[in-house]
Design a protein around this nucleic acid. Structure first.
Lengths: 224, 224
DNA sequence: GTTTTCACCGACCGATCGGTCAAGCCCGGC
DNA sequence: GCCGGGCTTGACCGATCGGTCGGTGAAAAC
């Protein structure tokens, strides 16, 4: 099993890569993340690395390959990374561990993560990302499995499983838009807070047993 | 007060604009949303509109202005749009209305919304978006005010207000990444579901504290 | 009837894009 | 000595970028 062996400078899973290649991947990831795929030129990457543009083509066949290495490196092992951090125990705690582990992955490979998640959606040629999509589905299905498990165990109420998964992933995936590594808490701590809010709810303690998924008063709707 | 008067083809707040300008804004918004700002050329926009590239420069001074009109149109009135849909009543219901109204705005101006939220983050020159940032802050502060109100009213527990706001906005802002207008429920319905999950929590209903006459269900009891 | 205005277009500009190529540079093995 | 091969380079390519220009034709204004 792949052991997530070589992780350096935030570039994951680039086992047999030379230092120069790792440098290129790190700089390219940072640039893709901040300026987007189309907004980043090969000259930008070369300049950031302090090398000539030609050298990029010595190590990579084209721009797409650089992006692919960056993106694949960031999502390749996310599923394995998270799965290996799910402890035995109550399903709700597995969900909590899922969120914390995902946040940890985000913290470690932040630039590559952002690059792959942002560039992907602006790319009209989605077929290029098929492998990435497959992994993403596996990751999301894994979470849905945990949620179903928690429902079956009676730990959480009978909510819509895909929607619950989307809510949880939203809280994690949107982090890169506001997370400031200098100011905020760690991503892991943030994930803990979000888990608490989603699992226990915001409502103050007096809760009655309420199996109905509907909000209390559906009335009042100001039309204008 | 601005009345959100002219909204056509999903292009908001373009009052005195001609049909052609509205067409350009609509097509540009759609293209920016799907291919990003850098990935969309002026030729692309002209082709999508069935006009010459020169005509774009007759109606707009440059590419940035087209983007600005698209982005400003989508966020200009978000705050007012949502504020006007907050009913009187319990603060928790105000938060619910906030989420539903934001979702409605997303549904109406989907392309412009996506274009402005995605292109913005890939733009190294953030100063261009200062006005947009100001509005975004006002919008977020408005939500935080509602949350604080709900805490003061005892409706929700003493959570971290900024973090709670981020969780709520995450659930709404991430929607454009997975929402499929042909398959899923309406954004408003999704917002209702998310509100229910966040407000009531996922945990199956057990009494916590409070002098409730009901006998606690035997068995499983989780602290926290 | 003439002039002004305005939506609109094709041709074109310099700059930059992704990508190529032939030729060094450097260094260990002979 | 000098020879090969991996790392590195600058000059260069065709295509496309955002943007400009002079002009056209028809309606509005005079």
């Amino acid at each position: 099993m792949t052991e997530l062996s070589t992780m350096k400078d935030g570039v994951a899973n680039q086992a047999e890569a030379s230092d120069r290649v790792l440098q290129i991947l790190a700089e390219a990831g940072r640039l893709f993340a901040s300026k987007g795929f189309e907004g980043t030129s090969m000259r930008d990457i070369a300049l950031a690395c302090g090398i000539s543009k030609s050298l990029l083509y010595h190590h990579f066949s084209n721009k797409d390959e650089i992006y692919a290495r960056v993106a694949v490196g960031s999502t390749l092992e996310l599923y394995l990374f998270v799965r290996d951090r799910i402890p035995d125990g109550p399903p709700s705690q597995k969900i909590r561990a899922f969120m914390v582990a995902t946040a940890e992955y985000f913290r470690r490979y932040r630039w590559a993560w952002i690059a792959s998640t942002t560039a992907f959606w602006n790319d009209p040629d989605r077929s290029r990302h098929k492998e990435r999509l497959t992994r993403r589905d596996r990751f999301e299905n894994f979470l849905r499995g945990l949620i179903q498990e928690a429902i079956d165990a009676g730990e959480i109420r009978k909510v819509d499983v895909p929607m619950t998964g989307r809510l949880i992933l939203s809280s994690l995936n949107w982090m890169h838009r506001w997370y400031n590594p200098n100011k905020s808490a760690t991503p892991e701590q943030i994930a803990e807070v979000f888990f608490d809010m989603i699992f226990n709810g915001l409502r103050s303690g007096e809760l009655v047993a309420l199996p109905s998924p509907e909000p209390p008063k559906s009335g009042r709707r100001k039309s204008r």
